[in-house]
Every structure is written in structure tokens, then in C-alpha cells.
Design a binder for these strands. Structure first.
Lengths: 342, 342
DNA sequence: TATGCCTGTTCAAACGGTTGCACAAACCCA
DNA sequence: TGGGTTTGTGCAACCGTTTGAACAGGCATA
């Protein structure tokens, strides 16, 4: 392992001089700089990152905490796209990414506290938030830089990047109503997630504003898995008065819904219409192609990193939360009247 | 920031004693240990990771280098599942994961050299390998612990975790032959990837052994993207003598193939049969469900971490490369004769 | 009672850098 | 020509830990 001292010795200067060459200190003579740089190059010297951050108290690393259970997340295209946004922006800004996950949810705070108090990272990105999230509580109390990809009611001062998920769900539901549907169901995600909650609120709001019936049995809560969608369908379709359209919390779940319906012998959108959220690449390739709300997943990740770096740098935020715009992409799965007419 | 010195002062002992309490040194009296631990707890003390690794020369961190272009990878379910295997095993073994990617392919070696020479990580996981990969060359030369998720001909001593991709493709192709197909095409990935190369070899081997015709125009190379599959179809289906079955490099690409065929008005498997690789969760939900080779993606990631930790620990490897078993999952997309008969 | 061995703790150096301060040499200008 | 300023470099302290060596006191053994 070649260190700064080795370079110094070989160049016949002191370690401090080498250090200053590396950091382009203005008072280094061009000649020395050239000589030292040549030797560094020749020896393949890179400053030891640990030593550096020990004195600079900065790591050029962002922590990303995968929520529990991580399994669910990984099986979702959504995650890959989000991660892409995160990695792209972090790399561009010369930051590395440290990924951790806890082995159990009771271990979550411990895991992050290791990162934070061990000064392992300069800031933390929280992917998704529970409605009462101990991680947010911890990071707030520690006054450690973090950004929440999502929303927290309990900590309105937390820096957040999110969609307006109430509006997102409202738009999706309103679209179905505009298509003539009057009985609309909702396949939701885990109820303790802010995301599920917000979308549920939007769905309810849309029904209410149009004075449509809201039935408890038309709402099913599950996971972000295809299975959940699949199971929800056997529940729904056995009802005497079943919905004619369904809002689904996530495309992945919607794939399960489609499969469930096809196994039960129903056709989409003729027998029942579907809209879902996130608009992953495959939505377009489903049969039928899924109507879905594009929530700007890549931009979500990208922006979150941007905000986090701002927090770390102590720069002011223009606004909080940052709301990423969404857009309803209408495809065949919800083209009920039009489709039937044609 | 509370340091070991603060704890020492509050407990009325020396920093070395605190350090020894943390590491459960046998010569610490139970009483001291109790006292110090109480104070650590009260102060929320965690050892500074940087300082620790500066002296221990170990980081408890694994680097994972995302290949260029990262975009392609992220759009693939395959990646999420692989990452899940990696994260799970790393977390279980108390290692963190550092993700980097290069901004350009010329920057790849630089990026990894920063990690390696900066002693930022204890070992590196290389996801996928090009046939002549400068990263492998670099890591080999540096004698830095790394594991290749894939295969390298140029560096047979590198530690590798891989499928037998020749056999994988052979099995898939042989299955089509067994179904009665005689004209079989291949939609491949980027030719410089070992993966594409190996699967191409397996495909060729199967054809050869059954004395089937091998036509250059029946082979198309593309990216791991749906678009590639889509485009390949317009090429194939315009040929006077087109294949009756196609082997596709990846499920994601196969989705594009399916869409292409459906837009051109062909039915699968009646008009043309499809088999592909990786067996991502959605293969089952495609229409028709995709025949695909399950390559044990999760296990691939999981095992790679295991191997890497073994290399880092200087433990002997039982075998190299470690070959993860695969299994052909036959679904409707290749059920040509059966399907037609029924 | 002197000797050696535990036991529990402290001391100080080391890990590989950064940086404020000191200082010598060169330069400038009156 | 002498004072002040600038320029280029070195010294030494410091970041927060670990760890080998030293050491003081207690205990057992001969």
C-alpha cells in the first residue's frame, strides 16, 4: 500500500507538500507539483479515503436505507427505476452510495444509528415511510441530514420529495368515473405506509365529490406483490354487487389482478376496468396494456439526491416538500366505453 | 459528536480501556465493563467507523460495480432479484454495500481504482463481464479481492460465480428441437458480453448436434431492452424463410418480442414459439406465459457474496467457478405441438 | 520473604492523511 | 540597502481508534 509518505520520500518533499499538491493548493510551485504528480501516477497512488474523512469529517457517501421487508421492493420494477435516478445523480455529484437494510424491523433504528453515529455517511435517503416511522424520529432527533422519499405527517419539518399522492389517486379515480363507472373498488397496499394512505384518501375524495357509493368491501389491503392482486380478485368477483372498475395501488399488483381476472374468466376492460399507479415499463406490454399514472419515478430518485446534497451543504431549500408531477397514461385497460363502442 | 475520549473521561478510565470494553477484551473487570457500557448507552456512543478502519485496514464494506450502461440493467427485473440476493447475504454477514457506477466506460477503471487504492472497500463484486474486461485486468493485477458474476476466459484464475450458460442455452434450444422445430432463430444481447457469447455457443451446439441449419440471418444482436426484441421481430418476420421458433437472450427482451409479434399479427406459440432466459417473476404473467430458463438469480447474488467473503478472509474455495444450477420452465409460449393438438 | 505469575489498567505509538503556523528565500519598492 | 511582502515548503498537532508494551498491585508458591 503506497501512502503519502512514500510519495513524499520519493519526491524528496514533505507529506504536507504532497497533500497540497493533491488538493491543488495555490502556493505549490508548478515544478514541485509536476514532479510529485508524476511520482503519484507512477506509483498508482490514491489517498486513503478513511484517513481523509477522519480529518475532514466528511465521507462523500450517501446512505440509502432499504425499508423492511426489502423483498417486496426488489420485486418491483419501480425500485430499479428509482435507484437509477438515485445512482445517476449521486455519481454525477461524486458521491458514493451505501446500501443497508435491517435484518428485522426492530433492528432498523440500530442499523441506521450505526451509520449515523459511526459517521459513515454524510446523509441518509429514506425510501418510503411508514405513517409513524421510528427512523424519521431518530434522524430528526439526531439532526442528521436526511431526505424522505415520501411524506410524513408527524414530522412536517423533514425534507421530503414526493408525489401529491392524494391527487394522483384522485385523478385515476376521476378518470374511471368519467368513463361512466359508478361502482369502483380499490386494491391498496400496506395500510401503515403513507403512500397507501394518501392514495386511499384521493380515491375516497373522488368518490365523494361525485356522490358515489363507498363500500368497505370494495376496498382490499395487501402487499406490493402480484399475489395480493391475484387474491383480491377472488374476493371481489364473488360479491353479488361487484365493482365495474378497480383502482390498483401499483402496477405490479395490477399484473396479479389481470392474471386473477383472466383465470376467473373475466375480460379487461369489457367486464371490468383497471387503472393503476407508477407506470413501469411493462405496463404498456400487459394484456391489455395498463392505464397507469406515471409518477416520474426516475425524477423522484434524482431529485431526492439533489435535495439531500442541499441539506448536507446547508443550502436553503426552495420548497418543501418537493412535489414531482404526475401524469395519467390512458391505455386499453380502462377504455371501457370507447372500446365497447368501437 | 461523542468520542471514545468523552466516554473515557466520563467513566474515569483511559480511552484504551473503553476500546477494550467495546471489543470485549478478556482482561477487563466486569465492574469497569458495566460502568463504561452504561455511559456509552447513555451518551449514545458508536465508534467512528473511519477511525476504526484506518487502523484495522478493513472496512466491512463490499463494493459493487454497476456495469455500463447502468440504465439497461436497472430496467430489468433480473437486476432487482440479483441485488436482493447480494444485499441479503451481505447484511447477514454484517457487511455494507457500496454501489458505484462510472459516468463513462473510459472512467470505469478510474472509478474502481478510487475504491480499491483508496481502501474504501474490502472486496469488489463485478456484475457481468465483458469478454475482454479492463476491470478484471485491473483487479487481478492489484491482487485485490473480487468476485466475478459471470465468466472470464482471459483470467481463468479469477473467482467466478456463474451459470453454465452454454448448457443453459443448449437446453432451451434442445427443448424447441424436441418440440419439432427445425428453423430456430436467436435474439442475442451485446456480443461483447460473455453471457451473450456463451448462450450463443450453446444455441449453436444444439443446432449442430441435431444437424440443423444455422443461418446468419436468423441471429440478431441487440441490447437487453424490450426495444431490441421488438425490432428483431420486424427483421425476422419479413424473411421468406423465417424461423418457427426463437431463443431470446432475456425475458425482458422476450417481452419486446411478444409485443412485436402481436403487432405484426402473429400468434405465439401457434405461429412461432418462444423460449427465453432468466425466468423473472413476470414471465409467468406474459401472454402467453413465457417458457424460460430459471437461472437461480437470487442464489447467484447470494453465492457471489459468500465467495467474496471467502476470498477476503483468505479461505480456500471449494471450487471455481461455482456453477449455479438452472432449470427449464416450460410454459405456453413454446408448447407448439401439444398446444396445437389439444 | 523473595520470586514469579496473574489481573486490570494506562501509556504511547501508529494508522494516513490535513492544516495552522513558522520560517527561509526571493522579490519589490522606496 | 533595508524593510516589508510574497512564495514555497516543512514542522507538528490533530482526527478517533487500536494495540503492544509497561506497570502496579494482589496472590500463590517455594
Amino acid at each position: 500500500m503506497v501512502t503519502i509518505k512514500d510519495i513524499a520520500r520519493l519526491a524528496g518533499v514533505s507529506p504536507s507538500t504532497v497533500s497540497r499538491v493533491v488538493s491543488n493548493h495555490p502556493r505549490i510551485s508548478p515544478e514541485t507539483s509536476r514532479k510529485v504528480k508524476a511520482i503519484m501516477e507512477e506509483q498508482g497512488y490514491h489517498p486513503n479515503v478513511m484517513a481523509k474523512s477522519l480529518v475532514s469529517k466528511t465521507t462523500q457517501t450517501l446512505g440509502i436505507m432499504l425499508p423492511r421487508p426489502a423483498e417486496e421492493l426488489f420485486q418491483n420494477y419501480f425500485f430499479g427505476e428509482l435507484l437509477r435516478g438515485i445512482v445517476t445523480q449521486a455519481t454525477r455529484m461524486n458521491y458514493d452510495l451505501l446500501m443497508t437494510t435491517a435484518t428485522s424491523s426492530s433492528d432498523e433504528v440500530n442499523t441506521i444509528s450505526r451509520l449515523v453515529r459511526g459517521r459513515r455517511v454524510d446523509g441518509v435517503l429514506l425510501l418510503g415511510s411508514k405513517r409513524d416511522d421510528p427512523l424519521i424520529a431518530f434522524l430528526s432527533k439526531e439532526q442528521f441530514p436526511f431526505v424522505l422519499l415520501g411524506r410524513s405527517e408527524a414530522y412536517p419539518d423533514a425534507v421530503m420529495v414526493d408525489n401529491n399522492n392524494v391527487q394522483v389517486a384522485y385523478d385515476a379515480t376521476a378518470h374511471l368515473i368519467a368513463q361512466g363507472h359508478r361502482r369502483i373498488g380499490f386494491v391498496s397496499g400496506p395500510p401503515d405506509l403513507t403512500l397507501s394512505h394518501d392514495r386511499m384518501v384521493g380515491y375516497r375524495q373522488a368518490l365523494e365529490e361525485h356522490s358515489l357509493e363507498m363500500r368497505g368491501e370494495w376496498i382490499v389491503e395487501g402487499e406490493f406483490l402480484q399475489e395480493s392482486g391475484f387474491r383480491a380478485m377472488s374476493q371481489f368477483m364473488n360479491m353479488p354487487e361487484r365493482p365495474t372498475a378497480i383502482v390498483v395501488i401499483d402496477d405490479n399488483v395490477a399484473f396479479g389482478v389481470l392474471r386473477g381476472l383472466s383465470e376467473l374468466g373475466y375480460r379487461v376492460p369489457d367486464d371490468i376496468s383497471i387503472v393503476s399507479f407508477n407506470n413501469i415499463a411493462l405496463s404498456e406490454l400487459a394484456s391489455p396494456p395498463l392505464t397507469s399514472v406515471d409518477i416520474g419515478t426516475y425524477q423522484l430518485g434524482y431529485t431526492a439526491v439533489q435535495s439531500l446534497l442541499r441539506v448536507i451543504g446547508g443550502e436553503p431549500l426552495h420548497q418543501n416538500p418537493v412535489i414531482i408531477p404526475h401524469r395519467l397514461i390512458v391505455r386499453e385497460s380502462s377504455m371501457y366505453p370507447t372500446f365497447k363502442r368501437s
